[in-house]
Design a binder for these strands. Structure first.
Lengths: 120, 120
DNA sequence: CAGCTGCTTCGATGAATATCAACATAGACA
DNA sequence: TGTCTATGTTGATATTCATCGAAGCAGCTG
């Protein structure tokens, strides 16, 4: 397969056109695919722990070196961080030697909104 | 697997011992596995649409026959509904010919709480 | 420049998952 | 009883995914 060097980062608006509530019966397959991708990103224990560690860091920002002790190899950590990035849940930035990850609050808020609309 | 025909009382088999917020740095691997399973259940487009259809039905309850038109075969629908059941997101009950599914609000509220704590 | 460290990407592999057709089961009704 | 409808289960298959070791890249420091 010609693995393109496709840019890893989806446009934020493409990731979250902002989610209709789950109580909306007319949830299209297209929307379902996009929303499912966000939930799927948090549907792995390693990714959930990585995300939790970033979110719990002061300023919502953490260096990879501070969070990578989750019981899997370092390449695997990088792989999962990439998945979280592609899902729009995290953003990354290299500053000198280290790479810092931070949470994307708008995406999380959208997910929470979908769920709380159902749970009331 | 016919459950007792008792009233829909809260099951003590709580799938959700209730979730610490994602900003809790001390998220154990055990907790991560349990929480990830819930997100994973909604991490599939077909399941998300099925869940949405149940949630959007009046009373939060729907017959399988009303929601199974999601583009996959009937056994596949049954398979996904079982997954949602095992994740604690839906409960099912047979009444006569049809089987009815309803949402489990407490689980959804817990998930929303985890996310909103981060997205503040 | 050379070596070192932090992180990502590549290639391979075993496990999990989604899907369907076929079969099984449960209730309604004649 | 037997047949029909509505769901669930089984078995098989193709695809996706998580994981690792090795290699590559970027930035620091001597």
């Amino acid at each position: 397969m010609s693995n393109t060097k496709a840019l890893p980062v989806l446009e934020p608006e493409a990731v979250v056109p902002c989610c209709p509530p789950l109580t909306d019966a007319s949830l299209s397959e297209e929307d379902a695919v996009r929303m499912a991708a966000m939930f799927k990103a948090l549907g792995d224990p390693v990714r959930l722990r990585l995300f939790s560690r970033v979110a719990s860091h002061e300023g919502g920002e953490a260096c990879v070196c501070d969070i990578q002790d989750v019981g899997v190899s370092q390449p695997t950590v990088s792989h999962h961080l990439k998945k979280l990035r592609e899902a729009g849940l995290l953003t990354s930035e290299r500053r000198g030697t280290w790479v810092y990850y931070r949470v994307e609050p708008s995406v999380l808020a959208a997910m929470a909104g979908m769920l709380s609309g159902v749970a009331r």
